[in-house]
Design a protein around this nucleic acid. Structure first.
Length: 431
RNA sequence: GCCGCCGUAGCUCAGUCUGGUAGAGCAGCGGGCUGUUAACCCGUUGGUCGGUGGUUCAAAUCCACCCGGCGGCGCCA
């Protein structure tokens, strides 16, 4: 049963070679005494021609009746034929059913979006989903490699937490042996603890947001790449962000070129080559006002504003120095202008919006306490977080990058859902 | 949470404005076909029109409420 030959390998074989392939029947076309089967496996699709007289009679009868998505083992000779997709087909002389389809496969031509999502467990057999998942795996692998090569240590942080990372964001509440607990929406605070041991850390794990955000760029559960770095200021961390993003784009272009091309996309690494344009919030405001947008100092940028701004750039770009009221309490105020903070959001060009959010954190105990109070939060609930500033506190910075957002942008996916095997949105927690 | 759209056969939809006993394509099932490309040809089964209530001689159609979904906003990655 051990599988040694994959569909992709078959296309490299010499014509006339007798081979055995195992896979699933993606489609079937019957022409009386000739049956075409499209055999799919994890590497590709090959057409199998089952001809009466070439295949043994029992195999032919099985092929006649076989249901779509049945698993089969087929033996036969490889034959070049310009009429076959890919120019090669298998002339079957024997067919065995490994696992039949007990009912009609529900996913047929013409099914709609809702039906596909309700049947995601079956839909993910489609080659397009498989390709996106391969690219996703490669993206994560490239990011891990780059971080490791640059001295970052991967840490794994808890999913159950007791308090919010940011005051306003919505947390999923869970019952923790009768006590309230929440699902993490960011591991930032835990990483801030870890830098006092490991200095440069990162994690790659899910974050949860209980926001009723019905847009094509939101999930309730998403994979979050977060980085935290001791002795790093805003400019140090922006350098890390742009080099990491470039490493991902450049790496995917090399390692996933075939998959990306199959999706009809092309990555041009020079479009993500550092340095990225850096504009301050105040400059962004001027750009928007010059375009006739009615926006005043202190207002946060909405989706419309981000879209307008992103049209001004062909590369990802940073927006920095937001008014402190627009950002969470832990952001470091700019010493030369304390009304703004040392934060950096990375926005993708083309209206794809925020991919990375981060900046420098407050490392002074008294200042952090003050900012917590100013945000009407209770310092007692942030006791361990404040504790970090009591013992050898150092300047530090970090950021979070959304894996699915990155894929959405780079692959121009219609919806961020397409970047997940089983997407979780406000309306969907099944299958 | 706010705004808009949608819900009719297994699937994709028409029919709703202008009320009058439910339609198409695909899938399925039966038959045919040795070069298809999610094949094609002939025949055929299949419906609690999202739910509840109301108006009416009569409701898929008009009204109210509810449920579910999609998209956008806010929020964010």
């Amino acid at each position: 049963m051990f599988k040694t030959l994959y569909v992709r390998d078959a296309f490299q074989c010499e014509e006339g070679l007798e081979v055995e392939l195992i896979g699933w029947i993606r489609s079937k076309r019957r022409h009386g005494k000739l049956i075409f089967l499209d055999l799919r496996d994890s590497t590709g699709i090959i057409q199998v021609a089952v001809k009466h007289g070439v295949a043994d009679n029992e195999s032919f009868m099985k092929a006649l009746d076989i249901g779509l998505e049945s698993s089969v083992k087929v033996k036969g000779r490889l034959k070049k034929d310009p009429r076959a997709p890919g120019g090669l087909e298998l002339h079957c002389n024997h067919l065995e059913i490994v696992g039949p389809s007990l009912e009609d496969f529900p996913i047929k031509k013409g099914v709609g979006l809702k039906f596909l999502l309700d049947n995601r467990h079956l839909h993910l057999r489609s080659p397009r989903v498989a390709i996106i998942m391969k690219i996703r795996a490669t993206l994560m692998d490239i990011a891990r490699r780059w971080l490791r090569e640059n001295g970052f240590v991967e840490v794994n942080c808890p999913t159950f937490i007791t308090a919010a990372v940011e005051g306003g964001a919505t947390l999923f509440k869970v019952d923790y042996f009768g006590k309230p607990a929440y699902l993490t929406q960011s591991v930032q605070f835990y990483q801030e603890a870890a830098i006092y041991s490991l200095e440069k850390v990162y994690s790659l794990q899910p974050s949860f947001r209980a926001e009723l955000s019905r847009t094509r760029r939101h999930l309730t559960e998403f994979w979050h790449l977060e980085v935290e770095m001791a002795y790093a200021d805003l400019y140090d961390i922006m350098k890390v962000i742009e080099e990491l993003v470039y490493a991902i784009v450049n790496g995917l272009n090399k390692e996933s070129e075939r998959e990306i091309r199959t999706l009809g996309r092309e990555l041009r690494p020079e479009m993500a080559e550092p340095p990225y344009p850096r504009i301050r919030y105040s400059e962004a405001l001027q750009i928007l006002q010059s375009k006739g947008v009615n926006i005043n100092w202190g207002d946060d940028f909405g989706a419309d504003e981000e879209r307008i701004l992103s049209k001004e750039f062909s590369k990802p770009f940073f927006v920095t120095h937001y008014p402190k009221e627009a950002k969470a309490f832990y952001h470091m105020p700019d010493p030369s202008n304390p009304s703004v903070c040392l934060n950096a959001d990375l926005l993708a060009p083309g209206g794809y919006g925020e991919i990375v959010g981060g900046g420098q954190r407050i490392h002074d105990y008294n200042l952090l306490t003050e900012r917590i109070r100013e945000n009407n939060l209770n310092p007692e609930e942030y006791r361990w977080y404040l504790d970090l500033r009591k013992y050898g506190s150092v300047p530090h910075s970090g950021f979070g990058l959304g894996i699915e957002r990155m894929l959405w942008w780079l692959l121009h996916l219609p919806h961020i859902r397409s970047a997940c095997l089983f997407p979780r949105t406000p309306a969907r927690v099944y299958p």
